[in-house]
Amino acid sequence: MDALKSAGRALIRSPSLAKQSWGGGGRHRKLPENWTDTRETLLEGMLFSLKYLGMTLVEQPKGEELSAAAIKRIVATAKASGKKLQKVTLKVSPRGIILTDNLTNQLIENVSIYRISYCTADKMHDKVFAYIAQSQHNQSLECHAFLCTKRKMAQAVTLTVAQAFKVAFEFWQVSKEEKEKRDKASQEGGDVLGARQDCTPPLKSLVATGNLLDLEETAKAPLSTVSANTTNMDEVPRPQALSGSSVVWELDDGLDEAFSRLAQSRTNPQVLDTGLTAQDMHYAQCLSPVDWDKPDSSGTEQDDLFSF
């Protein structure tokens, strides 16, 4: 819950932080000083300027060897085509990944977070970031790969997607708890209302004896509580940590079903599988986004697919 609360507080303090972009060759504004600060901008989305290598189908939802083989196929196909790589912007948030063309600003792909089953910074092609997700059109699994400016960037994108998945799962947990509370309150309110109706004398007997209905007592009954809980029953509950912020979080049926399955089948359902080692994760978390744009010590960066 700490990640969720800190993310909400950060967004309320400075929503404009989320509009910064990394990996864009110096076009961005001043960047936060450390990885923790940038992680807090996830709610509205972190932007990464990358190059799209392509996509291939895979048979399993996750796995280092599986993704490595898929990336190898994608890279080989991209090299064989001889075409310049498409420059894209990857927007990562707890909602998922939005992929747009840098030149036309046209939407290429919009992947809900619950469809993503794996992401990684490839070991062999260490400047490549990739994720595996279920197609929104059918049940097939797709591996999408992107060329980053350097290994640090690939690791940073991988960690960002993993963190977005974690925050999304926490949102789901909060929403589920809130819905259970509202359902319980609604049920209790309905029981109270039913009890009051059972003990209320029939209207005919009131008229016969000349008694008047006590409207004041009726007004004191917990009807307002019942209506408050039943009027918006169809509205999706939102985490309290975000009250007053500009973010509107809505959970669709697909996300609810997917996270429910994860909660039942996995020990740590909030953790998205990645190909990063503990050492890689520690190294990337210690980086400032400013470091992502620094040239690798191995030599001059080449803006070309064939540089790796």
Rank of each mutant, 00 (worst) to 15 (best):
G8L: 06
I97S: 15
D214R: 02
Y118Q: 01
D280V: 06
A133G: 15
V167I: 04
L107G: 04
K176Q: 07
L107H: 09
A164F: 11
Q264N: 04
W172Q: 01
T36N: 08
V247L: 15
A18M: 04
L193Q: 11
E217P: 02
T158E: 01
A10H: 03
E65G: 14
D252P: 03
F169Y: 12
L17T: 15
K127E: 06
Q86W: 13
A278P: 03
K84D: 15
V248P: 00
T36G: 13
Q197K: 05
E40I: 13
L4Y: 11
S265K: 00
H144I: 13
T160L: 12
R27N: 06
G25S: 01
V58S: 14
L31N: 13
T218C: 06
D253R: 15
N34T: 14
A208K: 07
D256N: 10
R151A: 02
A195S: 12
D37E: 11
V290Y: 07
T230G: 07
Y283C: 11
E180Q: 05
C143S: 05
D256E: 15
Q60T: 12
E65R: 10
M153T: 11
D256S: 03
Q60M: 14
D214S: 12
P295E: 01
R95S: 01
K176R: 12
A68S: 10
R182S: 15
G82Y: 02
S224I: 06
C199S: 11
S243N: 07
K179T: 00
V247I: 00
T277K: 04
S14N: 05
T56V: 11
L212Y: 07
A162N: 01
C119A: 07
I98R: 06
S6K: 10
K87Y: 14
K166Y: 02
T160W: 06
T41R: 12
A168S: 13
L57M: 10
N102R: 14
R151P: 01
I132W: 09
R73G: 15
V128R: 12
L53I: 05
G82L: 13
S140H: 14
S243G: 14
G25D: 14
G299Y: 07
L255E: 06
P201L: 05
S117W: 05
E65N: 07
S16W: 13
A10S: 14
P61I: 02
N138C: 13
G54V: 14
K83W: 06
Q163A: 02
A133T: 14
N211D: 07
L159A: 09
K84P: 02
E235H: 03
Y114Q: 06
N110Q: 14
T56G: 13
D198L: 12
S307M: 07
T56R: 14
G96N: 13
G244V: 14
S227W: 05
T77K: 15
D256Q: 04
R13M: 13
K51E: 03
L305F: 11
E216S: 14
E59Y: 14
S49F: 15
T158R: 01
A263T: 10
D183W: 06
S112P: 00
D293H: 01
E65M: 10
G54A: 08
S288M: 06
N105Q: 04
